[in-house]
Amino acid sequence: MTAISSNSNTEDVIVIENLNKWYGNFHVLRDINLRVKKGERIVICGPSGSGKSTMIRCINRLEEFQEGSLVVDGVEMIEDVKNIETIRKDVGMVFQHFNLFPHLTILENLTLGPIWVQKKPKAEAEEIAMKYLERVKIPDQANKYPGQLSGGQQQRVAIARSLCMNPNIMLFDEPTSALDPEMIKEVLDVMIELAQEGMTMLCVTHEMGFAKKVADRVIFMDGGEIVEENEPEAFFSNPQVDRTQQFLEQILNH
């Protein structure tokens, strides 16, 4: 556990300062500055290749960065295995392609983290798991295997799996992009409920309806930089930057 960045407000759960990342020589994240308060819901949008997924993947160290600083819930992200572990226990992630473990049952997928990372007894882990399975409305699938579930169900399981670790922050990386249209709503409903309960969320998505309903802030990224950020009302009706308006015209008119 190391020093907290001197500029942090105790309410800020994520503090990103001057973060720069290169893939080889390609400058993929440029001078990212972002502060996220506890309980804030942030939607990040932008064209593909803008670096939005890369940015949130830095937060739980699925990607590394070369310059800048990142502090998560008071713990600074440095090359220390202990720090990284602490941060990962605190941050949950939901992937575009679910990434459920196909050789384990749904219940086992959910109890894996609590048993092996949080060292909970099996009975307690299963209780937690069933509680979250009920929250995502599929308690009857507990003993099935991921391959036997629909896409929407799998993604809800993935959300439940992250929630079982009791994180303070949830990251969503295009959670509905790989779903058939009729299953998007069931996943978004779960996310909306989560938001309404006060979970700090960073969500990369194209679902603007979700953003309008739930987000405290919408961030638009392009070419590795944050171009504009604002409250959803203002963001959608009165974009301040020409690039933002261009993007909104493209996605809101199909």
Binding site: N60, R88, G92, F95, N99, L112, G113, W116
Partner: peptide, 18 residues
């Protein structure tokens, strides 16, 4: 094994050997 499996496991906080 798709890379997503290791990523999901890492994001749960599991150690490399586990």
């Amino acid at each position: 094994i798709p890379r997503g499996q290791t990523e999901a496991a890492r994001s749960l906080g599991l150690r490399e050997n586990k």
